[in-house]
């Protein structure tokens, strides 16, 4: 169980930088009143962030991932159970691989 000073310093730097990102956006909002346009943007940001996050991932990962992704969307839209949807997606990829998919 070693703890080196340089590693500790890096960890503290990483933690402070991450906290600045987490709290900073809200801290700014707490002291200033954003214009209506910015407020409208904040309403749209959540969905857009995750679409932008997923798009490049799925572009790179081939058709079995796209098929499994469609299964996740379908199961979640119908049943609204996160655990089940994730399991269905992983199961789909697993079965496709068993069947010889890349």
């Amino acid at each position: 169980m070693t703890l080196r000073w340089d590693v500790l310093a890096a960890i503290i730097g990483m933690a402070l930088a991450s906290y600045l990102c987490r709290a900073g956006g809200y801290a700014v909002l707490r002291v200033t009143r954003p214009p209506p346009f910015v407020q409208a943007m904040l309403q749209h940001l959540p969905g857009c962030i995750f679409v932008a996050f997923l798009a490049p991932i799925f572009l790179q990962s081939g058709w079995p991932a796209a098929a499994a992704g469609a299964v996740v969307l379908l199961v979640q839209a119908r049943l609204r159970r996160l655990a089940l949807s994730i399991l269905a997606g992983v199961g789909t990829i697993w079965l496709l691989r068993l069947a010889g998919a890349p």
């Binding site: 969905g47 995750f50 679409v51 997923l54 969307l73 199961v75 979640q76 839209a77 949807s85 997606g89």
Partner: peptide
């Protein structure tokens, strides 16, 4: 794939 699946499922919500 599970972590992408989790984000995808949340996206539906």
């Amino acid at each position: 794939f599970a972590s992408s699946a989790a984000v995808l499922a949340i996206l539906v919500q």
